[in-house]
């Protein structure tokens, strides 16, 4: 959200996808609004207003959070990773991204960035051998309306295996 004319503004600085960023913002600006409107990183989506759908999941200091549920100002000095920072632009995909493509784990694509960011965090916490039940329970905070989750579950299991020993794993999951 852009700062309002004449309204009180505050300055926030953080690292997003490895780059230092600073913004003058309306204090009520949510992290997701800061990412989307100030930084124009529009891969992080807003699908609800009750912290239920998970389309807005990003990593803050290495952990998955819902960026619709935290004020940007609360993240002074934080290290934020969004879907755009998961793999280098025009470079090879992150193994989890590749697994979603390979397993048809997306249809309309709107929930997908949040799903992938959740999945990468899931691997950090639960390891590389994820069974069907674990993945389904761990997806409690992410809603998909297109896929029936069948192929998302397959994709996450495959992506988790592929992340074992991959160079991008440690960076993304740190």
């Amino acid at each position: 959200m852009a700062a309002q004319k004449g309204a009180q503004t505050a300055t926030v600085s953080m690292t997003v996808n490895g780059k230092p960023v600073t913004g003058d913002i309306d204090p009520r600006t949510l992290l997701v609004q800061f990412l989307r409107e100030n930084l124009r990183l529009t891969g992080t989506h807003v699908g609800c207003d009750t912290s239920q759908c998970g389309a807005c999941v990003v990593h803050v200091n290495g952990k998955a959070i819902k960026s619709c549920t935290v004020l940007a100002l609360q993240l002074e000095g934080a290290d934020v990773l969004t879907i755009e920072g998961l793999a280098p632009p025009n470079g090879p995909l992150h193994p989890m991204q590749e697994a979603f493509r390979e397993n048809h784990g997306l249809q309309c694509g709107f929930c997908t960035p949040g799903m992938i960011m959740t999945a990468v965090d899931m691997v950090r916490r639960k390891g590389h051998d994820l069974d069907d039940r674990t993945i389904r329970e761990e997806l409690e905070g992410n809603i998909c309306r297109c896929t029936g989750y069948h192929n998302i579950v397959k994709a996450i299991a495959a992506g988790a295996r592929a992340m074992r020993g991959s160079a991008t794993t440690s960076k993304a999951a740190e």
């Binding site: 989307r36 990183l41 529009t42 891969g43 992080t44 989506h45 807003v46 969004t82 879907i83 755009e84 998961l86 793999a87 632009p89 995909l93 991204q97 979603f100 493509r101 390979e102 048809h104 997306l106 309309c108 694509g109 709107f110 997908t112 960035p113 992938i116």
Partner: peptide, 17 residues
């Protein structure tokens, strides 16, 4: 495998918002 997927899995799609 879908041609459209790259933009969706890299956060570079263009939805109305």
């Amino acid at each position: 495998r879908r041609k459209e997927d790259r933009r969706f899995i890299t956060g570079t799609g263009h939805y109305t918002d």
